[in-house]
């Protein structure tokens, strides 16, 4: 069953706290549509990150666990190991996953943990007000990169391509990067999420879907401009598509 119109059952019909033009809301919806299609609402657990989607439990209509900032993949490991037939979703922002939680994501992926990462890459720290993230592009301004990200001299490092980094690990089975900039990419992103969730429910892991997502507020743009900025700046560097697919289904 594919939802063509209407509100997903797994998503509460409340107004979110997200800013206009924010990608988190669309991504929540995609996750919930797939859960509904898989009939998995009552056996899903969402791991809330520490970031703008810290309130994910207000919106997702099923169980949730809130771990410390960046430790989400470690906590998801504990949840999934105890509930192997459940759908465990590890929802993380770029600061959460690629800065403070780098060790946790790499090792969970390397162990081939059978949960799914939903990695929202908005190239900024949204919740704390626009600081540089590990995914902030070279030259991109942030409150802590007032003259733009300067990788070497200012010691800001280079933007991290998470899917490509994780692809080197034998434990990873499915890594894809989508975006929520237009309807076509939203549909594609949903397909990636569906593949990853189906794989998880078959007992295959580790899977992660990275999603390029606008943060108009901290990019200091209007929603429309932020979509353009994402297309012109993020998409050339963070290439969309399936970065790695060694799922058993794929080889058939």
């Amino acid at each position: 069953m594919e939802l063509v119109n209407g509100h997903p059952k797994s998503l509460k019909s409340v107004q979110t706290k997200y800013c206009p033009g924010c990608g988190h809301g669309v991504i929540h919806r995609l996750v919930c549509e797939v859960i509904d299609e898989l009939g998995a609402q009552e056996r899903s657990v969402i791991m809330n990150p520490v970031g703008c989607s810290i309130w994910a439990d207000l919106y997702f209509d099923f169980d949730s666990v809130q771990a410390p900032h960046g430790r989400t993949p470690a906590a998801a490991t504990g949840v999934k190991r105890m509930l192997p037939d459940h759908l465990v979703i590890c929802y993380q922002g770029d600061g959460d996953l690629a800065a403070i939680g780098t060790a946790e994501i790499i090792h969970a992926a390397n162990r081939g943990e059978k949960f799914t990462g939903i990695f929202v890459n908005n190239a900024i720290y949204g919740m704390t007000g626009g600081q540089m993230a590990p995914t902030t592009l070279v030259g991109q301004k942030a409150t802590t990169a007032p003259y733009g990200r300067d990788p070497v001299d200012a010691g800001m490092g280079f933007p991290i391509q998470v899917c490509e980094l994780l692809a080197t690990l034998s434990g990873t089975k499915y890594l894809a990067r989508g975006a929520v900039n237009n309807a076509a990419n939203v549909r594609k992103t949903k397909q990636y999420i569906k593949k990853a969730f189906e794989a998880q429910l078959r007992g295959e892991g580790f899977g992660l879907v990275e999603i390029l997502s606008p943060c108009p507020t901290n990019w200091q743009m209007k929603p429309g401009e932020s979509v353009e900025w994402l297309e012109q700046n993020m998409m050339p560097f963070y290439k969309l598509g399936e970065i790695k697919n060694t799922l058993e289904e794929a080889s058939k």
Partner: peptide, 19 residues
């Protein structure tokens, strides 16, 4: 599980305990 750090280990416990 031999965790990657004590930080990870306690958070794995956190997840398991949450169930």
């Amino acid at each position: 599980i031999q965790a990657e750090s004590e930080t990870a280990a306690i958070n794995m416990v956190f997840g398991a305990a949450a169930t």
